[in-house]
Design a protein around this nucleic acid. Sequence first.
DNA 1: ACCTGAACACCGTTCAAGT
DNA 2: ACCTGAACACCGTTCAAGT
Lengths: 233, 233
Amino acid sequence: MARLQNRASEGRRRASHSMESVLTEAVALLDEAGEPALTFRALAQRLGGGVASIYWYVANKEELLDRATDHVIGSVLADVEALPARDDPIDALRAMAMTLFYAIVERPWLGSYFMRSSTVQGNSLRLYERLGEQTLRLDLSARQRFHAVSAVVGVVVGSAVDLGQEPPQEVLDGAVSREEFLSRYAQRWREMDPADFPFVHDIVDEFDGHDDIEQFCAALELTLAGLRLQSGT
Amino acid sequence: MARLQNRASEGRRRASHSMESVLTEAVALLDEAGEPALTFRALAQRLGGGVASIYWYVANKEELLDRATDHVIGSVLADVEALPARDDPIDALRAMAMTLFYAIVERPWLGSYFMRSSTVQGNSLRLYERLGEQTLRLDLSARQRFHAVSAVVGVVVGSAVDLGQEPPQEVLDGAVSREEFLSRYAQRWREMDPADFPFVHDIVDEFDGHDDIEQFCAALELTLAGLRLQSGT
DNA sequence: ACCTGAACACCGTTCAAGT
DNA sequence: ACCTGAACACCGTTCAAGT
């Protein structure tokens, strides 16, 4: 449906791309303004060619997104594989999950795509494997291992989705900072009746100006603590 | 930007809607075929009117999705509030999280929307409050409580996103059952080199035909175990 | 093998006008 | 206060044709 090619460009009159350049530019568009920015027309313009030529590399937009995602997951995988070895598999799991999460912080659009099942192959699968290998060092059943890795990935995705949807365009425009945005919500919360919303009032100061990474780490820690307990380490 | 109305319909020649009917039909479309099915034209047709009239109730598609989501979260909230009281707050948290997850299993499109920040008000906020109130009964700091609820919500969302993206249309069409679909992946996994993918081979039988609910429960259990440990209960 | 322009069907949104 | 038809700009995708 789509083939790889990468031959050196000889004298050409027409535009000439490559899978590499298509994906690189696609990722650039995603980085700039998320999925809505990735259109075939915008991409064609960046590549200096016509819209239809992209369809030689990719069957449709879904495949374009899958390949773009897999492309950047490739570098996440490299980062994960470059991590120093750990005696404790749970420490290793933590480091890997954090590497993945950091990558999503830098590319919020990644959050919604990196584990869609069409992508459960290529680099995503390799990443899944690397996480899973750590659980092989724990005293668990295969089912427990399967669930453990799903849980860790779930924590990453769960936190990441939040992240990907947070900025409501005024923040992206830079018109409003993230802090202001959070504070605005916090302010509304403070104005509600404390009798009806005791918990919201209890944590509103924590919500106001909170750090997403810290929030993610706390969630990850709970899961890893549960896992440690289960593995009897 | 959009106002509520619900007056009884008198003799009318033109179509006449209500916020209620707009949201009900919007949800029906989402239930039938997910977000792509929810278009202003499809919705107008179901309501028996013109496209533009919907814009009297809703400023744009984002608001339509937010309101539709909040609408169904309303019934989830009712279910959660109808849950029997529990001595153990962590048991209560589990029951609530499962209620929410079950609702998403029935409406996979819910997963991606129910916690986007534009929705952090209305019924979503009430649901968040109900979850949080359970943590008020635990011996934790405000920050720990904030993180605990985020973690629980994260587990739900993390598992739900998976769910929402799983069926790749052939499953939705009913042409391929979920089991077949999973088995197809499993088969590809089994064909890979065990030396390169020891973990994948270790868990492939668990993956094949796995139950999403069980997977979610396992992830939730790990988080709750961590929380229990933290609260010293 | 790879690229192009033009077309098609469909989408969200707007607006001046109706009742 | 609420609905309408017609238009606009934009989208993914296709296709017959070019090189």
